[in-house]
């Protein structure tokens, strides 16, 4: 089990970094701070770091978790400041601590989003219809598996809670608690549901943000 964990935010310009970019960037940041972390053995050792629940490009997060093992160098409590100084704009390390949980026990994620409708200034009715749409007891969405086969997934059980509130002209604010894994319900799938089953509710542009991770009992996951 990994011994140490970072919690960091990925916002602004950093939302465009892919998962692979992020891993490379984190590895280099550790090297620049002088923290020695555990590496794999073998001819071509690489740092043992893993970021839980890879984020889609374009989605921001306030609760990213990175597992690693500090062997030597600056102490854990100094890491947020040291690492943030060595990271690109938009990545901020919030805390570094001994990990007492396993990432596989993350069950839920709270997310927020903004849906923009360019042609519709008044979004009150839209918000109501979206709420009703996601209240259906069964909501099957077509999705592609890794092998590019098409399957159907009922996302209703993966959606613990969702609200839509008008947020000024042309905008609706979404707040939801969604399944984190096995399978996850990401913003992409939520939008797929809308575009497949209620295309007239499909927004012109969206911004999503991951806010917090929870375990099965809805305790904040640390």
């Amino acid at each position: 089990m990994p011994r140490h964990r970072l919690r960091f935010a990925k916002t602004g310009k950093a939302v465009y970094l892919s998962h692979l970019d992020l891993m490379r960037t984190m590895q280099r940041a550790f090297l620049r701070t002088g923290v020695t972390i555990r590496h794999t053995e073998g001819f071509n050792p690489h740092a043992y770091i893993s970021v839980a629940l890879p984020l889609s490009v374009g989605v921001e997060s306030r609760c990213e978790l990175l597992d690693f093992e500090r062997l030597d160098g600056p102490s854990l409590d100094r890491l947020p400041e040291l690492l943030t100084a060595q990271l690109p704009e938009g990545i901020e390390v919030i805390s570094a601590y001994e990990a007492e949980t396993k990432v596989k026990d993350i069950a839920w994620l709270s997310i927020a989003g903004t849906l923009e409708y360019d042609a519709q200034p008044n979004t009150a009715e839209l918000a109501q219809r979206l709420t009703a749409f996601f209240a259906q007891p069964e909501l099957s969405v077509k999705k592609r598996t890794k092998k590019k086969e098409e399957t159907e997934l009922n996302i209703a059980p993966l959606l613990r809670q969702i609200t839509f509130v008008p947020d000024g002209d042309h905008k609706i604010k979404l707040e939801a608690v969604v399944a984190a894994q096995n399978p996850p319900l990401g913003p992409g799938l939520l939008l797929d549901a809308i575009s497949q089953k209620a295309p007239d509710l499909a927004p012109d542009f969206t911004v999503f943000s991951r806010l917090e991770a929870y375990d099965r009992e809805m305790r904040v996951f640390l």
């Binding site: 950093a14 620049r32 704009e89």
Partner: peptide, 19 residues
């Protein structure tokens, strides 16, 4: 720009902000 970036390949190339 924020609307465009999610639609293009490798958007990290267009934002700067590097160390």
């Amino acid at each position: 720009l924020q609307r465009i970036l999610p639609r293009v390949q490798k958007p990290a190339r267009y934002v700067g902000g590097e160390v």
